[in-house]
Computed example of a mutant assay.
Amino acid sequence: MHIRCIIVDDEAPARDELRFLLSAYEGIDIIDEADSATAAIAKIEELKPDLVFLDIQMPGRNGFEVIKALASETAPKPHYVFATAFDNYAIQAFEASAVDYILKPLSSRRLAQTLEKVRTLIAQKNNSFIEQQLQVLLDKVSPPVRELIKISVEKKGKMRLLSPEEIVFCSYADNHILVHTSNEALPIHGITTMDKLEEHLAGSSFFRVHRAILVNLNAIKEFSPWFHGKYNLIMDDRFATELAVSRSRVREFKMKLGL
């Protein structure tokens, strides 16, 4: 039995180590590698491997999000083996699913056990069971659904509630916060600091590019490197507003976007 597999890890040494360990086993064909969740999703969709060795903690989207993104695929699902440094609590969730896990640093003995399990599962060819068990895993590791988030702003003497999706960015100046939508800027009501606003929007697609600017990552039209290690953003509003990512936040900004 030949097993076609893809290795997904953002660190090249980790991919090289796993490739070396797998070379000791007959019938394991490494058909590609990926260094991010985004790249992994594209390669899994294209190549349809039997097995994916999947890192959990990666810049931007994590390993669980790879599975979520591919959940609607009608083709036979690959078997996922997580490479993880997670604690025992998370491992209990893995053990309840059809996937397996290997702890970093990798062990040849543990890898052999994993491959034996994968060979057995592939031989069973029960894709519906795989889908069911992957959903069990995602249900256990997914964060709880947050309460409805709204931002209160003032317009013509009345209070208006905005959804996060309506906000392009927020700015702080002269001791007050302005909420910028695609066509106007409105003063916020009830929240007095950017720290509090950032906390209120935690879990949404917002990122603090500067101590006085909080942007909706989904509302960035384009961006490019700028002077002194900064990045320049062009926002998707009618003004094509330009904002700068401070040099100290560029690395985290790129990680958020999976770059």
Rank of each mutant, 00 (worst) to 15 (best):
S163P: 12
K43M: 00
A244G: 01
L22N: 10
K68G: 00
I149T: 15
I149P: 13
G157P: 05
D236M: 10
S248Y: 04
F86A: 11
I191C: 01
I6F: 05
D236P: 09
V245K: 07
G190K: 14
L162P: 15
L18E: 06
A173S: 15
L137E: 06
Q113P: 04
A93R: 06
F94W: 09
Q92M: 08
E154K: 13
V118G: 05
P13N: 10
I41C: 08
F169I: 15
R15C: 03
L21Y: 11
F223N: 07
L243F: 04
A240S: 15
P78M: 01
Y89W: 02
I177P: 12
A83R: 04
S246M: 01
S204K: 13
P164G: 14
E199L: 12
E116T: 12
H210S: 11
S171D: 13
F223R: 06
D9L: 01
D55Y: 00
A240N: 15
G258D: 11
A244S: 11
R247F: 10
N216G: 13
M194I: 04
L47V: 00
L54H: 02
I44V: 13
I191A: 03
L257F: 14
I188R: 12
R146V: 08
G229V: 15
D100I: 08
I151W: 02
F227W: 11
S142R: 10
L134A: 02
D55W: 00
W226F: 15
V52P: 05
S204C: 12
D195L: 10
F129H: 08
G27V: 07
